[in-house]
Design a binder for these strands. Structure first.
Lengths: 217, 217
DNA sequence: CGGTTAATTGAACGCATTCAACACGAGTGG
DNA sequence: CCACTCGTGTTGAATGCGTTCAATTAACCG
C-alpha cells in the first residue's frame, strides 16, 4: 500500500472513491434534526462519518462555556477523523441533515486496501489544511478580515453568484472567535462599502471581488 | 544504535521507529545556525525532517507582514509534513540546531512497508492534534490564559522543575497571537501572583500548578 | 396578525495594542 | 574595571478595536 505520495493539492481531491464504496457497503445512513448532537465532545471515536445532506458543525466548549467551532462540513465531506481515541470536538447537525457512518473497526477490516488507506490519509491532510488556515485566521486577522475571509470561503464553495449561508450569526462568530454583534457590524460595514450585498440574512452576493479577496488575504 | 536521541521528555512526540530507521539509512544530517531558514513558505515540499538537536519554528507571514508561528519542534519531532504540494509555513532554526532530512521520494521508495506508512500517518495525526489545541487557544482564550497555556505546555514538556524557554518573547507573541508587550505584562502579572517565577528571561519555575492549570483550561 | 427567535444598532466599557521611554544583560574595546 | 553599544525585555500612558449590556428592528411561523 502507499499513502498519499506524491503530495497533491487536497482542494482538488474530492470524495475518495474507495472509501465511499466501503461506506456505501458497510455504512448506515442516519438522519439528524437541526441542532441535534451527532457525537459528544469527549466521547470515544467509534465511527467515521460522511455528510450526505445538510451541514454539520464541530464544536468545543471550555470550562467557562466559551464555544469554539472547529469547522463546517458539507455534503461529501468526511468528518469524525480525530487524532486521539476520544473526540476533542463534538459534532452537531447545523440544519436537518443526513450522514453516512461506518465503524472504524469495519474500515480497519479493509486495511490492506491501498486506495482506502490513501483515502483516509487524504481526508486527514485536508483537515490539516483547514486547521492551518483557521489558525492563521484566528491569530493574525482583524474582525473585518475574519468576516471577509469567511464570506470568501463560503462564496468559493459554490459556483452560483447567490451564496447561501447555512449557519446563523452565532455560528459564524464562534468560528471566527468573535461575538455576534461584531460579526453583524462587519457585515453591515462591508455591505455599506458595496463589497457584498445581503438580500436576506442567510444569503449574499459578492459585489467587489477585488476588495473581498484583498481583505481575506 | 546510530542515532543520537537526546530526549528524556515523555511528552515530546518521538518519531516512530520504522520511520527513524529509514531516515537513518537514507537521510542526511544538516546543521542550521540560529534564525537560519530551513525551508521557505511557498517552497515545494521536498523533504521530510526530524529535529536532532535544537528547536525549530514554523512561521507564516501575511501580506501586511504580520507573523503567525505554527508550532515549535523539539528533538525527536517530525516536521515538514504539510497537506499540500507546497509549504504553507516556512521553517527556521530557533537556536542553532541540527536536523535530519530525507527526500519524500526516498520515503516513497519504502512505501509498501505498512509500518512506515502508519508512522507517517501517526505523525500527521499528531500534527492535527497540535493544531486543534492551537485553534482553541487563539479563538477563545484571553491574553492571560494564552500565556498561562504556553507556560503550561513548556512545563509539561520537561520533567525538571526548572523550565527552559528556547524562544524569545517575540516568538511567544507570534505563536499566541499577541504582542510582545502583552506577553511581557502577563508574565509579570503571573509572577506577581506567585503562579510562576522567572529567575531569568529564558527560564522559569511553576510555583502554583493549580492556578496555572486552571488558567490554561 | 401576534409570538418568538434572530439580527441589528447604540453607547459605554475594557482588554490588548500602540507608541514611547527605560532597564537589563551580553559582548567589545579602551 | 568601566564605558559603550546593541539587542532584548519591561514598563508607562494613551488610543482603539472588539466586547458588553441594552434597546430596537427584522424575520419567521403559528
Amino acid at each position: 500500500m502507499s499513502l498519499a505520495y506524491p503530495l497533491d493539492d487536497p482542494r482538488t481531491v474530492r470524495a475518495p472513491s474507495a472509501l465511499v464504496e466501503v461506506m456505501d457497503r458497510q455504512g448506515a445512513r442516519v438522519a439528524f434534526a437541526a441542532n441535534e448532537e451527532i457525537y459528544a465532545q469527549g466521547e470515544d471515536v467509534e465511527y467515521l462519518y460522511r455528510v450526505v445532506r445538510g451541514v454539520v458543525r464541530t464544536t468545543r466548549l471550555n470550562a467557562e462555556g466559551r464555544r469554539q467551532i472547529g469547522d463546517f462540513y458539507y455534503p461529501g465531506d468526511l468528518f469524525g477523523l480525530e487524532p486521539g481515541p476520544d473526540h476533542q470536538f463534538g459534532a452537531e447537525a447545523l440544519s436537518g441533515c443526513e450522514v453516512q457512518r461506518v465503524r472504524h473497526a469495519a474500515v480497519r477490516a479493509f486495511a490492506g486496501d491501498a486506495e482506502l488507506d490513501r483515502a483516509i490519509f487524504e481526508a486527514t491532510r485536508r483537515e490539516l489544511q483547514r486547521l492551518q488556515e483557521h489558525v492563521l485566521l484566528l491569530g493574525r486577522k482583524t474582525a473585518r478580515e475574519k468576516v471577509a475571509s469567511f464570506l470568501m470561503g463560503a462564496a468559493l464553495r459554490q459556483t452560483e453568484a447567490r451564496v447561501e449561508l447555512p449557519m446563523g450569526r452565532q455560528d459564524m462568530a464562534d468560528y471566527l472567535g468573535l461575538t455576534i454583534e461584531t460579526v453583524s457590524r462587519m457585515l453591515t460595514q462591508l455591505q455599506g462599502e458595496s463589497v457584498v450585498e445581503f438580500p436576506s440574512h442567510r444569503c449574499f452576493r459578492v459585489k467587489d471581488w477585488g476588495t473581498l479577496e484583498q481583505l481575506a488575504d
